[in-house]
Structures are given as C-alpha cells and as structure tokens.
Amino acid sequence: MVQTAPLPVSSSASTVRPSAPASKPPPAVPVDDLPAFDIQGFSLWYGSRQALYDVSIRIPARQVTAIIGPSGCGKSTCLRALNRMHELTPGTRIVGSLRLFGDDLYASGIDPAYVRRRVGMVFQKSNPFPTMSIEENVLVGLRLNGVRDRAFLQERLEESLRMSALWDEVKDVLNRPGTSLSGGQQQRLCIARALAVQPEVLLMDEPCSALDPIATAKIEELIQLLRERFTVVIVTHNMQQAARCSDRTAFFYMGKLIEYAATREIFTNPANPQTEAYVSGRFG
C-alpha cells in the first residue's frame, strides 16, 4: 500500500476543540478521500500478552466498516484502541501510528478525553445512566463538557434523538428515567447520547448482541442512516449482520488483520483462505 505524506498534526490536535454551538459545521470531514482512520504498524500488548500484531488499515470516511472474527481475535481490542478506551485496562502498551483524519491520536499531549469526543462509542450492553432522565442522558456529554446554552442543548437533544430514530417514541416522555425504556430503545438512547457530542466517528461494540431481532433490525436500519453523516465502525460476531449493514469488512484472526475489503468481496470472493474458511463457517 502506498503511504501518503503525513499530514501536519500538532497544530489542530493539541488544542481542544471548542464545543460552542456556532463554531462547528456539522460534517467535519475535510476531504472525502482522506481516510477516517489511517493505522500503520499498530501492535498492542496487555501486560506481556500481545493482542494486536502489526495492524495496518485505512478506514474510509462515511462508510460502515464491520470488524469480524472469532472470539479473542482482537476485534474488540482494535475497536477500543480507536478511541483509546483500551487504556482503562492497566498495563497496556502500543506501538505504531493511528491517525484520525490526519491527526495522530496517540501523540504525546493528546488528552484521551479529546480523542473520545471525536470518536464516540456504543457498547454491547446498553448503559443509560440510571439516575438521569432520557433528556439528561442525551445531553450529559455536552453538559459535563461545559455547554450551558439552552437553545443549543435543546437543538442537540432533538437532533440526536431524531438521528437515532428515537424522537417520535420519547418526545413526550423526556423526563422519564432512561432506564424505563425497552432494551432496544435504551440502546438507541445510548446512540443518541454518543451522537449528541457531535463525534466524527461512531464505534459500536456488538451493539445488537443483547437485543431481539426486531430491535436489532431497527439498529441496523439506523446504521444505514448514520453512514450518511458519520464514519461507523462496528464489531460484530454476527456475519449476517456484517453482510447486511456494512460497506467494508475487516477480518481479524489471532490478533492479526487477515483481510480488509469491500463486504461483498469478503463474503463472496475472499482473497485469503482463512477468511474464506471463516465466512463459510468452517471454523470460528
């Protein structure tokens, strides 16, 4: 793969983006052919155990990328490395470079909180904050990052809930506890909460594995809407789901990236025999 010249990093990356309303136009993607993530030679260790081996991958912007692979293959680790959530596990170490739209996310002096504001995340199990109402859940990221402007908050509330296809269901009960919603609604609430801080990328770690088929279908539909404005990276152990809702698929095995290509290619004409064995269900 030909590597493009590295982009200047420090100037934009070291200053924390202001979260004031007027300062930011909605699509933060500067150039369409600039990949959302450009990862080169990335390895990761948990203590002495290596979890990722020399991963190089360029994830295009405003597409859905699915990460598949058997349990323990490093797919969740890779996802969590994209917004530095793996650092919550003590004793992790990385080498290699990971750039988000050209900005080195691991450069020294970069606050992980800043990375996570640009790269939102939705977890396997929905986790709305139990002490907060639906509205408070959606706005907590903005409020705790210091946004006070009421009109702006109101606007973000409605837009986030609309984007996560939840507005019509909850617009009259915004003061109810977030935990009063059904499982699928709670997961969409968590998506709304992640979208409210206007990230550039949304990471999803098996977002449907705790949901029934109908709630799953809704989330998958939602992902199709989100790809118009965001880059989505979704880890799934469900190959049909990857086939249904992703544009590109990455196959991980034993901590290595085996293949990354258009989803149709991966599932119909994989280049690597290991990929073929996995997607045809012969192991994993």
Binding site: M85, P112, G120, M121, N127, P130, G141, A194, V197
Partner: peptide
C-alpha cells in the same frame, strides 16, 4: 463499570464522571 466507560467514551473528565455519575 459500564457507566464509567460510557462516561469516558463521551469524553467527560474522570473526576466529573466520578462525582456526577
């Protein structure tokens, strides 16, 4: 732990997550 993770994933400072959440 998932509440702490959810807060951190929103880019909220750790001390605010601990006190407010």
């Amino acid at each position: 732990q998932s509440y702490r993770e959810a807060g951190l994933a929103l880019g909220i400072a750790r001390w605010k997550i601990i006190t407010v959440i």
